[in-house]
Nucleic acid binder design. Structure first.
Lengths: 112, 112
DNA sequence: ACAGCATATTCCCATGCTGGAATACGTCAA
DNA sequence: TTGACGTATTCCAGCATGGGAATATGCTGT
């Protein structure tokens, strides 16, 4: 089977750098219509719409119709699984001291 | 252009659930030879080797030859960019109180 | 040298992607 | 209505994927 669709989950959705850009932008600018994103990201409008479609499918963003505009809003809690997963590894780069701890915790199975 | 190769960066590499499984396993069991991973993950050996190849290209794991075995070790600091990126959104789901803060910080540009 | 184990690589396939261009859709103003 | 705007969808292309099967490589003991 081929690579999983980008709409499978948040992990797949955020693999695309442009989609992370969109997320970052929505986080800093707040809910925005598509046109604003197009202007700031300097991407073709269809490209932005398609990326938004993926993010929408995964639930990372939500839409609201406002006249002929569509206002996209970030729904960041869908990113929590990613944070949860990667946070387990934070200790690996936090302090040098942790190296000692890690050796003890991991203790390659050969140990008695 | 098609989707970026999985070897492009850590974001693309970890989109595959099996590769996250391998990372998790290396983290908890410590450096391990391929055979151990194959046995525990119950995946065909070539599949594991291929996934390890991707992780190796991105730098998430490192290999060490030990006789006829190859011992793979986690190099978790390559996951830091992911942690850094997603941590910016932690506040969105931490405390309910943050909702108030967030509204103030984001203040959709229309505001005076 | 040889057999056997541990691992990597190659080949094939069906699928789904991203970008670009063109086009369709829905809404507002006159 | 009609036209114009904002946005979404469709069609096309090239391409890398992950799985399976088969095979190649490398090391070890005898």
């Amino acid at each position: 089977m081929p690579r999983a669709p980008t709409t499978t989950d948040a992990f797949n959705a955020i693999a695309e750098p442009r989609r992370r850009d969109i997320i970052d932008l929505l986080a800093s600018a707040g809910p925005s219509p598509v046109g604003d994103l197009v202007q700031i990201l300097k991407l073709p409008q269809p490209a932005v719409s398609k990326h938004l479609g993926v993010l929408r499918d995964v639930g990372i963003v939500a839409v609201q119709r406002k006249g002929r505009h569509r206002v996209y809003e970030l729904n960041a809690k869908t990113l929590k699984p990613i944070h949860d997963w990667v946070s387990a590894y934070e200790r690996f780069w936090m302090h040098q001291l942790n190296r000692i701890k890690l050796r003890a915790e991991q203790s390659p199975k050969g140990k008695v």
